[in-house]
C-alpha cells in the first residue's frame, strides 16, 4: 500500500516538474535540441560525416544534436523530410549530390531551391578504378580501348542505375565524344559491392571515389587510373587528374552540405554558418575527414547556392545526354 502511494506521489511529482518545464518564450537560438536528418543509412559516408559534424557542432552551439537517419528511395525520403520540416532552425539536414539528380529522373519535385543553403562541408571526386591485374595501366589506354571496342565490351559498376558514379563514367565518355552506352552500367548497391564484383572478375571498371576504394587499393587488388577533379587527392597523390592525363575538363564528385528547409530566419542562418565554419576549421573535423580519406570543401550562403545550382545543371545535362532524364 505504502509503495503504491509512493508511486502515486512520484507520478504527481513528475507531473509537477513537467509543467514547470513548459518552455518560456523563445530565447536566443538555439534554445532546445536540434535534429539533423541524414538521408542515407548508418555506416555510410554521409552518416559518418553527419555524425562528426553533429558532435562538434553540439559543442559550438551548446545544445544536444540528434542525428536521425531517414533512408531509402535513393535519398528521396530523407531529402523530402528535410524540405518539409519547420524552417525554425531546429531541423537541419545533410543534403547530398543526389538532390541535383533525382528530380531529373522524375522521382520528386524537390530541387536545391527548396532548401536554405547553409554550408558545404565535403566533396569527394570520382576516380576511375580497375582491378590491379587489369591490362590497362593508364586512363588513356583504357579510354582508347573503350573507344575502339564493341558496345558493352566494358562493364562498370559501383552504385545503382543512374547513380552518381554511373553519371561520372557516362559523363566522362560523353565529354570525350564517345558514345556513353559503350560502357554497360551494372547496378550495384554501393561502391563496396561494385569493387568486390570487379575483383571477382564481374566488371572491369568502378568509377567511385578514392576513399571508397582505399582499402582495396592498399591491399593491392585495385588500382586507380585517374581522378575527375581539378587537383590530385591528398590520399593518393600519384593518381593523375583527367586534365593531366587526357586533357579532359570533366569533373564530378559527390558532395555533402548542411541545409535547412526553405525560409529559415536570417539570424538563425547566420548563427549556424558561423558555428559550422568553426566546425569546418576544427581539428576534430579535419582530422576525422583526413583519416577517413574524405575530401573537405567549404562554401556558405550564396556560394553554396551557386555551387548547388552549377552541380544541378551539370548533372541534368549529363543525364539528358545519356538518356536518364526526360
Amino acid at each position: 500500500m505504502l509503495r503504491r502511494m509512493l508511486l502515486n506521489l512520484e507520478t504527481i511529482a513528475v507531473c509537477a516538474v513537467l509543467f514547470a518545464f513548459v518552455s518560456p518564450a523563445m530565447a536566443q537560438y538555439p534554445a532546445r535540441p536540434i535534429t539533423i536528418i541524414v538521408p542515407w543509412g548508418a555506416g555510410g559516408g554521409t552518416d559518418a560525416t553527419g555524425r562528426i559534424i553533429a558532435s562538434v557542432l553540439e559543442k559550438e552551439l551548446g545544445q544536444p544534436i540528434n542525428v536521425t537517419n531517414r533512408t531509402g528511395g535513393s535519398g528521396v525520403v530523407g531529402h523530402s523530410a528535410i524540405a518539409s520540416a519547420e524552417p525554425d532552425g531546429y531541423t537541419l539536414g545533410v543534403a547530398t549530390v543526389e538532390i541535383g539528380m533525382m528530380h531529373w529522373q522524375g522521382l520528386t519535385e524537390l530541387t536545391w531551391e527548396d532548401y536554405t543553403p547553409i554550408a558545404l562541408m565535403n566533396e569527394d571526386p570520382a576516380a576511375v578504378q580497375v582491378a590491379a591485374d587489369s591490362e590497362f595501366e593508364t586512363i588513356e589506354a583504357l579510354v582508347d580501348a573503350i573507344k575502339s571496342g564493341e558496345p558493352g565490351a566494358f562493364k562498370a559498376s559501383g552504385t545503382g542505375q543512374g547513380g552518381i558514379w554511373h553519371l561520372a563514367i557516362a559523363g566522362m565518355l560523353n565529354d570525350l565524344n564517345i558514345e556513353p552506352s559503350k560502357v554497360q552500367w551494372v547496378p550495384s548497391e554501393g561502391a563496396a559491392s561494385g569493387l568486390q564484383d570487379m575483383v571477382a572478375g564481374g566488371v572491369e571498371i568502378v568509377p567511385c571515389s578514392l576513399p571508397e576504394a582505399r582499402s582495396l587499393i592498399d591491399a593491392g587488388r585495385v588500382k586507380s587510373l585517374a581522378i575527375m577533379a581539378e587537383e590530385r587527392s591528398e590520399l593518393f597523390p600519384d593518381v593523375p587528374t583527367l586534365k593531366e592525363a587526357i586533357n579532359s575538363d570533366w569533373q564530378i564528385g559527390a558532395w555533402r552540405g548542411i541545409v535547412g528547409p526553405k525560409g529559415m530566419p536570417d539570424d538563425v542562418v547566420a548563427t549556424l554558418t558561423e558555428a559550422l565554419e568553426k566546425v569546418y576549421n576544427s581539428d576534430e573535423y579535419k582530422q576525422f575527414m583526413s583519416e577517413q580519406g574524405y575530401g573537405v570543401r567549404w562554401a556558405a550562403g550564396q556560394d553554396f547556392a551557386d555551387f548547388m545550382d552549377q552541380s544541378n545543371q551539370a548533372l541534368g545535362e549529363t543525364m539528358k545526354a545519356i538518356g536518364l532524364a526526360e
Partner: peptide, 21 residues
C-alpha cells in the same frame, strides 16, 4: 519501392515514403 536494379519506383503509387520500400 525504388530499391531495384532498374532504379525505377515500383508499386509506390506516388508516395515518397513508399519509395523506401
Amino acid at each position: 519501392g525504388l530499391n531495384n536494379p532498374a532504379g525505377v519506383p515500383r508499386f509506390t503509387f506516388g508516395s515518397t515514403e513508399m519509395l523506401a520500400g
